[in-house]
């Protein structure tokens, strides 16, 4: 099993956001988490990535047999968790290429593996960025500084492709994307689908799931999974709206 979340309760600033969330994600599977605003989608992504300020009051999260909650954010990344953020952060003064190389080597070091040499890194980096139609000039700029919304999301997928996580959590990666950018991002994600890699795709809209077809769809409402089903559940949600599905659940 890639990820097992059991009866997870999380408070943020004293307020309980996740109220008994249970979820199991197998190796190589793609699950979608859908839900209305305020249902706890981003809280789930942050608590998995290990952000400070998200207090787990009850429950467990097991990642590939390890207690994930014992690990710090950087240790989780080294263990194979990747969070593609809804709002990628701008880092003035640090170029994307330098940032990624530092990150990759930090992960390799944490896993006791040798660092990647500059030539191999640059070769892989060039391949991946070309797949995402990102220019050389763009990755030599500071991380996300002056990037459009779509460029920032592509940069997240580029990082994911370079870091090759075991579990990728995509937090509203589709928000703010036009259809061309959406296809490009989805294509990048699909290219990474593999038996040893799982995805948790968090989204508000069904549109992204036309391109990244999930194995399972979960509806998150009021801090817990209200309903689960196959890919058809996403279309049903789109057609009938969250309210009706949640009430019926």
């Amino acid at each position: 099993m890639m990820l097992e979340i059991n009866d997870l309760h999380v408070t943020v600033g004293g307020k309980e956001i996740l109220k008994g969330l249970t979820l199991a994600l197998g190796e190589g599977e793609v699950h979608a988490i859908m839900g209305p605003n305020g249902s706890g989608k981003s809280t789930l992504s942050y608590v998995l990535a290990g952000r400070d300020g998200y207090e787990v009051t009850h429950g467990s999260v097991t990642f590939r047999g390890r207690n994930l909650l014992d690990l710090k954010a950087d240790e989780r990344a080294a263990a194979g968790i990747f969070l593609a953020m809804q709002y990628p952060v701008e880092i003035p003064g640090v170029t994307t290429i330098n940032f990624l190389r530092t990150a990759l080597n930090a992960q390799l070091k944490a896993r006791g593996e040798p660092e990647i040499d500059a030539v191999t890194f640059l070769k892989r980096f060039k391949e991946e960025r070309e797949k995402l139609l990102m220019s050389d000039e763009m990755v030599k700029r500071a991380v996300n500084v002056g990037f459009s919304g779509g460029e920032k999301k592509r940069n997240e997928v580029l990082q994911m492709a370079m870091l090759r996580p075991r579990l990728a959590v995509l937090d509203e990666t589709d928000s703010g994307l036009d259809i061309d950018a959406l296809k490009l991002v989805a294509h990048g994600v699909n290219a990474l689908r593999a038996p040893e890699r799982s995805f948790l795709v968090i989204t508000h809209y069904q549109r992204l799931l036309d391109y990244i077809v999930p194995d399972r769809v979960h509806v998150l409402a009021a801090g817990r999974i209200a309903k689960s089903g196959g890919p058809e559940l996403a279309r049903e949600l789109e057609a009938r709206g969250y309210d009706e599905i949640i009430k019926a659940a």
């Binding site: 952000r51 710090k72 953020m85 952060v89 640090v94 990150a103 930090a106 944490a110």
Partner: peptide
């Protein structure tokens, strides 16, 4: 920014130095 770097695997102290 600090969280972003750490979420990519850069340990806190190194992330701070980088910033």
């Amino acid at each position: 920014q600090l969280f972003y770097l750490r979420a990519r695997g850069i340990p806190e102290n190194e992330a701070r130095n980088l910033l």
